[in-house]
Design a protein around this nucleic acid. Structure first.
Length: 821
DNA sequence: AACGGACGGGG
DNA sequence: GTGTACGTCCGTT
């Protein structure tokens, strides 16, 4: 039966409440909720900041009231008016017997938690300090999430991205490690035209620089503070140096607490759990553009590096006049050309702003949907971090209990196969086409209505459908609006945000026992249908005589006949796509001049405009000596073009350059990370020497911290030589009290080698690097040739062999279509 | 070669 | 006060 217009409209309204919340409060730019039940809300209204404090009621979801029964009359249902003091109230949610069906709340979180803990201690007869220790009986979210889920408010209603006041700052330091170096410069800018560089030529100026940075942030009063690797570098470094000077970092917003807070954060669960330091401050959102870059590459998977300069070039936002200085040379350069380094630092913050405009639109749009802080949505995992809070808010809005346990079991018993992976051929193919199924897993979920069984309200499938439709609308809107005005940006950002959520839907069902709505069976059903679709595509291609190269989950590389045009390729893909189930779309993703197929997921592609794309470990060097990387790229390009003479020349040229010492130490250095302390290494050194530490000891360095990355190379006399990545100043003291006590601002300078001097040396071990060239770099071209040809091409001695083929007779191992069509 | 473990980035 | 995954690379047997 067809639904009436009214029914459809109200269903849509409900779905929109699921997706966007329901309360219209405009312009929220930050929320600072506390355990005492107070929440401070900052709003940007007509460009000005206002804040107010409200009382919210902290809550927890429980499977039963048994731990609260001891409260007696101090525990009451939500609307019960009874005389006497009520400590905890509850709301019974609709749902199966075993579910999180009690929403319990109190005036403040300590009261609520203590009441539950007291009950649980009596019940379990053991001491407990937190709700976590009780087990699965309680479900809890962060305090800001409680506030936002409870009110139906979200960030940024009615705002555009450019309405935010964003400030970027970037530290320049004398070393990467705050134990070894100090801040000598900070560049600050914001998106309202402010620009300033502070510097501290002498170690004694550092404290003043830190204080000024804090007061400038106060004066500018931005909503957002941004930088690239803010959480991994600038804030930890700043915190360490501020502590060394006894300065407190007051960069918060009036109306809340001022000082920057830091606490350890556990990323992920289980054996791979890692800790990092999370920073947070009242009234401002802290944004690390590195997180945004990671998320972007998670989808596109074609970024060669996540470094700021590389990423800026990748997005085409790097200015042609931009100053580049090697990390190790920044402080050295500052001493001779301070103005150049100031420009460099300003270029950094300018690029961060560009990156922010390019990448943070999607998190901005997500913050208008999910009940979490903007700064969390910018770094949260899309499944547990974004989708689940949306699902939880929807259930609470509907007065429905959250599922318990059922999901946890089925996530584990549904241990299923993933996508199919095939390698059909090794060697070199020309006229290669890549086709893949657009959003395979979410399309299958939607087409065949596969959702978690425990999702009784069907929220996941419902918002998946709504997101898919809305995303198409925004995509279409973005395309019709002229891009010059920037008016398309909100549409572009919103569709990107929706894509993130759409792609998270499948992963969320397959997520481990942590996900409330996980369903391993359903996830298995999705991948099973996915394998069927891929098989169908592969069979169709084979029937038409295409040369299959490799296929993975939702995509396939294959070679077409040499005389085919793009139109013929597109036509083939659309014909095969037309045979797939309705709702499943096969897309023509691209064409390549040639492809070297090495192993599954390990290949090199040559684009029609001459670009080289290398994919997979097996084709990359694990050692990353620059000379070898350069050779490999050149040789790969020649091999893909069938230019065997070019391969041979590239090899012989590298051999000659090594022999004639035309490379420098920097071209040959390997970079490694130290994991042992000097003490730990001293213990194992007798039995087990390690080159990295030996290089430091040879250079007279006896102090280092685990985590430091160093470069070294092997010299003529078989010793390893450290290649310093920094220029030594008098080492900084970690402790201001110590400096006060000793009355010295710095210690005696040491006589360690300097960066510029070592980097240009040429006393490397030629035989060693010839060996590396063959075994570590040339070896990666093995699959492109027959074994005998490979031997002939990459001999170290370069003497022609007795049975050598004339080089013009050598061919790559071609992958070709089985028949001419 | 096959494996666990740790990193990515920042000066 | 929390809650990515994944492809690489390293060091170890």
């Amino acid at each position: 039966m067809a639904r009436s217009k009214v029914q459809v409209a109200s269903a849509l309204q409900r779905e929109d409440e699921y997706l966007f919340g329901w309360d219209p409060m405009p312009g929220i730019v930050s929320v600072w909720a506390q355990r005492d039940g107070q929440a401070v809300i900052w709003q940007r209204i007509n460009g000005r900041i206002v804040n107010h404090t409200e009382q919210y009621r902290p809550w927890v979801l429980a499977t039963s009231l048994r731990d609260l029964a001891h409260l007696g009359d101090a525990l009451q249902p939500v609307n019960e008016r009874k005389p006497g003091k009520v400590l905890v109230r509850y709301h019974k949610l609709k749902g199966p017997e075993k579910s999180y069906s009690y929403l319990v709340f109190a005036r403040d979180l300590p009261t609520l938690e203590q009441a539950i803990l007291n009950g649980a201690i009596t019940r379990l007869k053991k001491p407990l300090n937190s709700l976590m220790e009780i087990g699965d009986d309680y479900y809890r979210v962060g305090v800001v999430e409680q506030y936002l889920m409870g009110t139906g408010r979200v960030y940024f209603r009615g705002m555009n991205y450019q309405d935010l006041h964003r400030l970027q700052f970037d530290l320049e330091t004398t070393a990467l490690d705050p134990h070894r170096g100090r801040i000598f410069m900070v560049a600050i800018r914001d998106n309202q035209g402010f620009e300033l560089v502070l510097d501290a030529p002498e170690p004694d100026d550092e404290a003043v620089l830190i204080s000024r940075l804090c007061s400038i942030i106060q004066e500018r009063d931005p909503d957002i503070i941004e930088n690239h690797n803010l959480f991994g570098f600038d804030l930890p470094f700043l915190e360490h140096r501020a502590m060394a000077h006894g300065i407190s970092l007051e960069i918060g917003r009036r109306g809340g607490s001022m000082v920057l807070e830091s606490y350890p954060e556990t990323l992920a669960v289980g054996p791979d759990a890692r800790k990092r330091t999370r920073y947070s401050v009242a009234g401002r959102e802290l944004i690390d553009t590195l997180d945004a870059v990671r998320r972007h590459d998670y989808v596109v998977r074609d970024m060669p590096s996540y470094g700021l300069k590389d990423v800026a070039r990748y997005f085409g936002i790097a200015s042609p006049e931009r100053v580049y200085i090697e990390g190790a040379e920044i402080f050295e350069t500052y001493r001779s050309q301070p103005a150049l380094v100031r420009q460099y630092a300003l270029d950094d913050v300018t690029e961060v702003d560009g990156l922010s405009r390019r990448l943070l639109g999607a998190p901005f749009a997500l913050a208008g949907m999910a009940p979490r802080r903007y700064e969390r949505l910018a770094s949260a995992g899309p499944a547990m971090g974004i989708l689940e809070p949306i699902l939880v808010r929807s259930y609470l809005r509907a007065g429905a209990a959250l599922p318990y346990q059922a999901a946890k079991q089925s996530a584990e018993d549904g241990l299923h196969e993933g996508g199919a992976v095939h390698l059909f051929a090794e060697g070199v193919a020309e006229h290669v086409v890549k086709a893949d199924v657009a959003s395979l897993y979410p399309s299958l979920m939607r087409t065949f209505q596969i959702g978690p069984a425990c999702d009784r309200l069907g929220v996941l499938l419902s918002i998946l459908g709504r997101l898919t439709d809305l995303r198409l609308t925004h995509k279409a809107a973005a395309q019709t609006i002229s891009d010059l005005s920037g008016e398309a940006n909100p549409h572009i950002a919103t569709q990107a945000a929706m894509k993130i959520l759409i792609n998270a839907a499948y992963g969320y069902m397959g997520a481990g026992s942590m996900a409330l709505f996980a369903d391993g069976q359903a996830a298995g059903e999705v991948t099973r249908r996915g394998r069927t679709i891929l098989t169908q595509v592969l069979d169709s291609l084979r029937q038409r005589g295409m040369a299959l190269i490799e296929a993975d989950t939702d995509g396939v590389y294959f070679a077409v006949p040499p005389d085919w045009t793009v139109e013929q390729e597109r036509k083939l893909v659309s014909e095969i796509g037309a045979q797939l189930p309705v709702g499943i779309r096969l897309e023509y993703e691209g064409r390549y001049r040639a492809m070297l197929s090495h192993e599954v997921k390990n290949y090199a592609l040559l684009t029609y405009d001459g670009g080289l794309i290398v994919h997979g470990v097996a084709l990359r060097s694990s050692r990353a000596e620059p000379f070898g990387e350069r050779f490999l790229r050149k040789a790969l390009k020649c091999a893909l073009l069938g230019d065997i003479q070019g391969v041979a020349d590239a090899y012989q040229e590298t051999v000659q350059m090594l022999r004639q010492r035309q490379f420098t130490a920097s071209d040959l250095a390997t970079r490694v990370r130290l994991s042992k302390t000097p003490e730990a290494y001293r213990l194992t050194r007798a039995t087990h020497q390690e080159q990295a530490y030996e290089a430091l000891l040879n250079a007279g360095r006896t102090h280092w911290y685990p985590g430091e990355r160093i470069r070294f190379y092997k010299a003529r006399n078989k010793t390893v030589v450290w290649l310093p990545d920094e220029t030594e100043e008098a080492p900084v003291s970690d402790d201001w009290r110590e400096r006060v006590r000793t009355g010295r601002s710095s210690q005696t300078p040491t006589n360690l080698p300097q960066h510029a001097e070592v980097a240009k040396r040429r006393d490397y071990d030629v035989e060693h690097y010839l060996h590396v060239l063959v075994t570590s770099y040339a070896a990666r071209l093995r699959k492109a040739f027959e074994p005998a040809d490979f031997e002939q091409l990459f001999r170290i001695d370069a003497q022609p062999g007795l049975f050598d083929e004339p080089i013009e007779n050598i061919q790559p191992r071609w992958i070709r279509c089985s028949q001419d069509l």
